[in-house]
Design a protein around this nucleic acid. Sequence first.
DNA 1: CTTACATCCTGATTGC
DNA 2: TGCAATCAGGATGTAA
Length: 277
Amino acid sequence: MPELPEVESLKRLLARSIIGRTIVSARINEPRLRRAVAADFAAAVSGRRIEKLRRRAKYLIIDLSGGVSLLGHLGMSGSLTYRDARFVPDKFDARHDHIQFQLDDGNALVYNDPRRFGLLKLLPTVELESSVELAALGPEPIGDSFDAAYLAKTARGRKAAIKNLLMDQRVVAGIGNIYAAEILFRAGVRPTRRAGRLKRIELERIVEATAPILRAAIDGRGTTFRTYRDSSGRPGDFVTRLQVYGRAGEPCYTCSTTIRSTTVGQRSSFYCPTCQR
DNA sequence: CTTACATCCTGATTGC
DNA sequence: TGCAATCAGGATGTAA
């Protein structure tokens, strides 16, 4: 499930290969993603040079020559791989290679997404900020205005579970189910606690736990991230460092208490009943 | 404004 | 064994 660390890892890996390349042509095999890919998409990207890669929340932004940008979101199961167009790595089903960009180095940039929850759209670079996707996003969780004062102000009076608040992209942008669980474990706060009821010190611990968790995940190339040209589908290293996510029934690494799972806001949640209060 | 919940989709897993 | 039901989940749209 691509969250901020996975998208950041993807951005860094792809940047090495595709910056400076020109898109010779594009082919749309399946336009029906979360929103249908525009009919003129292929023609509109062809001939443009890839200038820069950026990330905002869980969105990947590919700036192209001529003042336009590709705004991409991997949804649940999307992947963007740089590879020989004729070669489909084991982990990818060619049926889900929905969009292919042929590059001037002979390789291709391929968007594969079995569940089609993703997004790929082209828009003028100057309109990115005001786009429906990016306009309402909250601060980045690292190196932005996400601090205890901000979280306290946002949480005030809110009945929603703190985990839902952390996953709300308007509150803080880029955190999903996995990292919300890990951040709350590190902060020692149960995911079910109502946001408005948390003490200042707890909010501070949550903010302080956020950057280290995300940074460690980025360093490990994410949790479920698959390397962009490795056909083995090797998962990101952070999967081995998860403290609670997906560990229901297993002992807590800190206190040996059995990790529990529960449902918070329609999503599976994991926590240690001893370490998190 | 806030919260709750259904919806999109396919593949993996679980249940009978 | 085989097939059906369930689960997974990011963003969004609708309803309360």
